[in-house]
């Protein structure tokens, strides 16, 4: 199984993308499988192992939380931009200590933090286990450290480690 399909998730994703771009017919399904399997084999030549997923049940919860947070912070940032002064009280850098070590988990955390308006991922130091983020409307720094630790990192740790 692992030899035949080195990246099952990626293969399924590519197949779905192929079907969306063309049409949902049996013929396109066959071509799509060919393309998806071929492409995932090409990627396996690069040698990066597929990350193991420990708990599938946490994924829908993470997706739900992230969608809700993105919508909420969209409105928060829009309100600040439209206010009379047009800028937040104070924005600044925050260092967040982090226990997550899996590269896939860190990549997802980076995408989540940057895709949410109001926070942007800038750097990661593996030696000190710390990330550097920039926060648009920085109230209390400790609050942001706890928010990222409790809301995202805990779920990612459940999924990947």
């Amino acid at each position: 199984m692992a030899r035949l399909l080195p990246y099952p998730l990626l293969t399924a994703g590519l197949l779905l993308m192929w079907l969306l771009l063309t049409s949902f017919t049996p013929g396109q399904f066959v071509i799509g499988i060919g393309v998806a399997v071929g492409a995932s084999h090409a990627l396996s030549a690069l040698g990066e192992a597929s990350p193991p997923i420990r708990r599938w049940s946490a994924i829908p919860r993470l997706v739900g939380i992230v969608t809700y947070d993105i919508l909420r912070s969209n409105l928060a940032v829009a309100r600040i931009l439209l206010s009379a002064s047009g800028r937040p009280q104070r924005s600044g850098f925050v260092r967040v200590p982090i226990r997550l070590r899996s590269p896939a988990g860190l990549a997802i955390l980076a995408i989540v933090i940057t895709a949410t308006p109001g926070t942007a991922w800038l750097d990661y130091s593996s030696t000190r286990g710390e990330i550097l983020i920039h926060v648009f409307d920085l109230g209390d720094e400790q609050e942001w450290v706890e928010l990222i630790g409790d809301r995202y990192e805990r779920l990612l740790l459940e999924i990947f480690e």
Partner: peptide, 26 residues
């Protein structure tokens, strides 16, 4: 529009980096 408006209105680069995410998320 609000996001790109922020691009014009905000004063430092690190603040402006948050503005386009409005356009690219919702």
């Amino acid at each position: 529009l609000i996001g790109t408006f922020g691009l014009v209105r905000l004063h430092s680069f690190y603040q402006r980096i948050h503005a386009p995410t409005l356009a690219t998320s919702w």
